[in-house]
Design a protein around this nucleic acid. Structure first.
Length: 156
DNA sequence: GCCAACGTTGGC
DNA sequence: GCCAACGTTGGC
C-alpha cells in the first residue's frame, strides 16, 4: 500500500464538497500535470491512503484522510469544451488525462496547518514542504505518514 | 496583490 | 535540442 498527498483549493473542491458527495466519494478531476498524472495512472492502487490538503486558502494544511476507491480512468472534463479543464488534445481514442475516485476516510476535527508541518524536522523530506514544489499529487513515505498522524491530537 | 519558482510552449 | 517568453501556482 502507498501513501500520498493530494492538494486542492477548497473553493474549487474542498473537504466540505467531499463530505456532501454521495457516499462521501468523488472523482478527483482536473489534474493537468504530467508528473501528477503519472503518479495516479501508474502508482495509485486501490485502498491507498492520502492526505487531503487545502491549498491557496486562509490556512493551508491537511484536513482529512482519503482512500483511493477506484484506480485511474479517463478524466472526462478534458473532453468538455465548457469545462475549465478542457484540453482539445485529449481525445476519446487517446485520453491524455486521468483521475481516481477518492472516498473520505477521516475528516480531521483539528486540521494540521502548513505552519505546524514545517515545525517538524522529521517532515523536512516531505515534497509538499520543499521549496517551489507545485505538484498537486505527491508520494508520502510511511515515516512521514506516521509523523503527520502523531500531530493529529484528536483521536476520532 | 506580490513575487519566486516552476512547467509549458514555440521559434529557431 | 535549446532557451526565452509566458502562464500558473501558492505562500505570504
Amino acid at each position: 500500500m502507498n501513501y500520498w498527498l493530494m492538494k486542492s483549493e477548497p473553493c474549487t473542491f474542498g473537504l466540505s464538497h467531499l463530505q456532501q458527495a454521495p457516499h462521501q466519494t468523488s472523482f478527483w478531476d482536473g489534474v493537468r500535470n504530467y508528473q501528477a498524472r503519472n503518479f495516479m495512472r501508474d502508482n495509485m492502487k486501490l485502498g491507498d491512503l492520502a492526505f487531503f490538503y487545502h491549498s491557496n486558502c486562509q490556512t493551508p494544511g491537511i484536513v482529512a484522510i482519503i482512500e483511493i476507491d477506484k484506480t485511474a480512468y479517463p478524466d472526462a472534463t478534458a473532453w468538455d469544451p465548457n469545462s475549465k479543464y478542457y484540453d482539445p488534445k485529449s481525445t476519446l481514442e487517446n485520453p491524455r488525462w486521468v483521475g481516481v475516485d477518492v472516498r473520505l476516510k477521516q475528516a480531521f476535527s483539528n486540521p494540521i496547518s502548513l505552519a505546524a508541518l514545517r515545525q517538524q524536522p522529521a517532515l523536512d523530506t516531505m515534497l509538499i514542504l520543499r521549496r517551489g514544489n507545485r505538484l498537486s499529487i505527491t508520494p508520502v513515505t510511511p515515516l512521514e505518514w506516521e509523523t503527520v498522524l502523531t500531530l493529529q491530537t484528536e483521536v476520532l
